[in-house]
Computed example of a mutant assay.
Amino acid sequence: MSFSIVLIWVAYEVRWFYPEMQRYFGDAGTLAGQQLATRSRTYLQASLETLGTESLTEEALKKVKTNLDLAYGFLDIGLYRERYDCTEASLALLDDFDRLIDSPEVPDSRESVAHLLPVIQCATVIEMGQWSRRSVVAMEMVESIDWHQRVFLWGTILFYVIGLGFWWMHEKQRRAFTQSIRDKLNWMQQALEDPLTGAHNRRALDSDLLGHLAQYKRGSKPFSLIMCDIDYFKSYNDAFGHADGDEALKQIVSAISKTLRASDRIYRYGGEEFAIILPDTDGNEAVDVGLRAIEAVETLYIVNPESPYEKLTISAGLASTTTSIEEPDTLIRLADDRLYEAKSSGKNRLSTG
């Protein structure tokens, strides 16, 4: 808005104010731009010069009469009659001289000067008076231009500052809105994460299972779910305390995460149990992921004297989507059943049913 007002102001200056000034002063040097009194004086001087230097032939007299008629017309102006006392007398002298020209005896140089010189002097007085008035107008115009320039300068600065103010307010509001969105996203992300391990939580698991299952029903590739449980973890906690147990949970989640693809996700299902969703992965492909996860935990070699393996291990159960699976809970129960099979058959292994 501020810049629009400035543009309108510039258009006013360029399209109206300065052209008016130029029309008033710009063509003063041309014949058409001269004052009427100046043009009258020019024709009077030309007539006087003709009468004094040329032989008074019929053609010369005709030229003189034409110049006198023009001089009379340019001097016979209401403004001149009103403001300059010499105007009426000068017009009367021109009438008298015109009659002399028409008489049989043409006036000589002395008579011509006697009649025309006062008229020329009057035209000069009018010319100088008008120039004085024009000088006053010129000074007023200069002051007006100076005022316009000052107002234009400070107005432009004011509108520019206002524009910056509106931009700053908009930018401040935009940043506050962006920060609010970021805070909400962070809060939503934190609401879906387990604060201890950094894995996604049960709420995120339920939401993602619904989404993947809906995509599968619309024709997408099957996906797989692995349920994992840390073997003999209760005895580990009892032996080393919950602080070491929490540290072990974080290490195990980190180790399993490193074996997964970017599209795969690990969730803390509860306590020492975890879930892994493998998008676009059928049962055969998911087996390799489950085995790598088991191996990654073994490689940590977190000592657990209560385990027959003398270290912390995990058991896993694998289930993949089929047309008979309609609800997320069905897939979870299937994977949980196979996890139970892995636990029952010796732990530290993957059961696929």
Rank of each mutant, 00 (worst) to 15 (best):
F3I: 00
S4H: 06
I5R: 12
V6R: 09
V6Y: 04
L7M: 08
Y12Q: 03
E13V: 12
R15F: 09
G29P: 01
G29W: 13
T30W: 06
G33L: 12
Q34C: 11
T42I: 09
L44V: 08
L48I: 01
G52P: 03
G52N: 15
E54A: 14
E54C: 08
S55Q: 10
L56T: 00
L61S: 06
K62A: 11
K63V: 05
T66P: 02
N67W: 11
N67M: 12
N67H: 11
N67C: 04
L70W: 04
L70E: 01
L70V: 08
A71I: 06
A71E: 10
G73P: 01
F74L: 00
L75K: 01
G78H: 07
Y80Q: 02
Y80K: 00
Y80D: 02
E82R: 07
E88A: 13
S90W: 05
L91E: 02
D96G: 15
F97M: 07
D98K: 12
I101S: 02
D102I: 04
D102R: 14
D102E: 11
S103M: 03
E105L: 13
V106Y: 03
A114M: 03
H115I: 00
H115G: 05
L117M: 10
I120Y: 05
C122P: 06
A123S: 15
V125Q: 13
V125N: 01
E127I: 09
R134I: 13
S135H: 15
S135A: 15
V136K: 09
V136P: 01
V136H: 09
M139Y: 14
M139S: 14
E140N: 13
I145R: 11
D146A: 15
Q149G: 00
Q149Y: 08
V151L: 05
V151C: 10
W154A: 12
I157P: 02
V161T: 12
G163A: 14
G163S: 12
F166V: 13
W168G: 12
K172W: 11
K172I: 03
Q173M: 13
R174D: 01
R174N: 08
S180Q: 12
I181V: 15
L192W: 02
H200E: 07
A204N: 10
L209N: 05
L210Q: 14
G211C: 11
G211I: 14
G211D: 14
L213R: 15
S224H: 08
D229I: 00
S235Y: 00
D238T: 08
A243S: 12
V253P: 01
A255E: 09
A255L: 08
I256H: 02
L260V: 03
R261K: 05
R261G: 15
A262C: 05
R265M: 08
R265Q: 13
E273H: 10
E273N: 12
F274V: 07
I277E: 01
L278A: 06
L278S: 11
L278W: 07
P279F: 02
T281Y: 01
G283D: 09
G283Y: 01
E285T: 04
E285L: 06
A286F: 10
L291P: 00
A293I: 06
V297D: 04
I302P: 09
S307W: 08
S307N: 10
E310C: 06
E310P: 00
I314K: 02
S320M: 07
T323K: 07
S324A: 13
I325S: 10
I325C: 04
T330S: 15
A335K: 11
D336W: 06
Y340H: 10
K343A: 07
N348R: 08
T352C: 14
